[in-house]
Computed example of a mutant assay.
Amino acid sequence: MSDNDVKIINHSITRLLARREHSRHELYSKLALKGLDPDLIKQQLALFVEKDIQSDERYVEAFIRSRVSKGQGQQRIQLDLQQHNIDEAIILKAFEVCETDFTETALEAYRKKYADKPIEDWKDKQKRMRFLQYRGFNHQQIQNTLKVVAKE
């Protein structure tokens, strides 16, 4: 363990976190690609977590806000977070405090994509449902969206 490696790791973590929130796993991966000592990386990351400079909870909250603004649903966001090796308990807690109405988000995504175009036939309806499903909305949210659109 050289003093220089510690400085490089600390500087890299600080620089990355200054741009945006990063998960602990993300930071570890980026630093490991630089060929730095894995144990030293873990040790320095633990210090940043202990001082609350890096927080997976803040990362998850920022991630959710970002994805909701892009018109994605809870299922897709949750899957993406799991791929970032975020603890399931942190993800569920973040969604509990999240004040997003995903049915409304689904409706906004639908309107943005299809505007005022009426559903032509069964095949078109299925296509639109698959679009919302791909975006991560559950069956109930999709059905509610289509009911609102049908009334318009």
Rank of each mutant, 00 (worst) to 15 (best):
M1H: 10
S2R: 10
D5E: 14
I8N: 06
S12Q: 08
L17F: 01
R20Q: 12
H22K: 14
R24P: 00
L27G: 04
S29W: 01
K30D: 07
K30T: 07
K34D: 14
I41P: 00
I41H: 00
Q43M: 12
Q44I: 15
Q44L: 08
V49R: 08
E50Q: 15
E57P: 00
R58K: 05
Y59L: 03
V60C: 02
E61A: 14
E61D: 11
F63Y: 15
V68F: 00
S69Y: 02
K70P: 00
K70Y: 13
G71C: 06
G71F: 00
Q75T: 07
Q78C: 09
L79K: 13
Q82W: 04
Q83C: 07
N85I: 13
N85G: 02
D87F: 11
A89Y: 06
I91C: 03
V97D: 08
C98E: 15
T100M: 11
T100H: 14
D101K: 08
T105R: 05
A109I: 10
K112S: 12
Y114W: 11
D116W: 05
K117H: 06
K117S: 11
E120F: 10
D121E: 13
W122H: 13
W122E: 15
D124L: 02
K125N: 12
Q126N: 12
R128I: 09
R128E: 03
M129I: 14
Q133I: 12
Y134G: 06
G136P: 01
H139G: 02
Q140P: 04
Q140I: 15
I142T: 06
K147G: 04
